[in-house]
């Protein structure tokens, strides 16, 4: 049997063994494939309250229904209500038809008849879409938004609000109406 033939046989055997070995590793590492968008967790009439290091309630995320799905790192809210406590005497709250709480548990996006109230003065903000940062107390939207404040209303396309500083920046096409002073 010629030397060349022996080399070929040896190579084939080595390749077979390597392939088999490679096949096993491949099988062992792959996590089982989860079906995406399958309902994983369902909460009915729930409210999640978080506390700060002093034991003070700092924010709460409530909803008639919350759904968490496999493979999707966020929860879908129905009839959502969010509230944030800034100080003992100052807080704000928001409600909407739908909402999404993101994986970081810091960002919440509200959609559909969004109403936000700042509970230490008579400010009320209404829009169709609003993104809330529960840590920085920043609200923002690019939708049409209306702010009612002290007998006046201001509307614009787009807004960014610092709810802690109670500062509202209207970004485009601003119109305001101030009620006349009492005679």
């Amino acid at each position: 049997m010629t030397r060349k033939r022996i080399q070929t046989i040896v190579l084939c055997v080595a390749a077979a063994i390597a392939w088999q070995f490679y096949d096993d590793i491949d099988m062992r590492d792959a996590p089982p494939e989860l079906p995406r968008d399958m309902l994983q967790t369902y909460l009915k009439n729930s409210e999640t309250v978080r506390f700060d290091t002093n034991g003070q309630a700092k924010d709460s995320v409530g909803a008639e229904e919350i759904r968490y799905f496999t493979g999707v790192a966020r929860g879908e809210l129905t009839n959502a209500s969010i509230s944030r406590t800034l100080t003992l005497s100052e807080s704000w709250s928001a409600s909407a038809m739908r909402g999404t709480v993101f994986e970081d548990n810091q960002t919440v996006e509200l959609q559909g008849q969004v109403v936000l109230n700042h509970d230490s003065n008579d400010i009320q903000l209404t829009t169709d879409r609003l993104r809330l940062d529960l840590v920085k107390d920043i609200a923002s939207t690019d939708a049409i938004v209306t702010l009612a404040h002290h007998g006046a209303t201001t509307q614009s396309e787009g807004l960014t609000a610092d709810l802690k500083q109670q500062s509202f920046h209207f970004t485009h096409k601003v119109t305001s109406v101030y009620a006349p002073l009492e005679p």
Binding site: F168, V177, Y178, P180, L181
Partner: peptide, 23 residues
């Protein structure tokens, strides 16, 4: 004086703490 005041502008900022709106 008995009419409402109507304002339009490109952008505006309202400071509720100061009670001032800047257009």
């Amino acid at each position: 004086a008995q009419d409402p005041i109507r304002i339009s502008a490109d952008e505006a900022t309202r400071s509720e703490l100061e009670g001032i709106t800047r257009y």
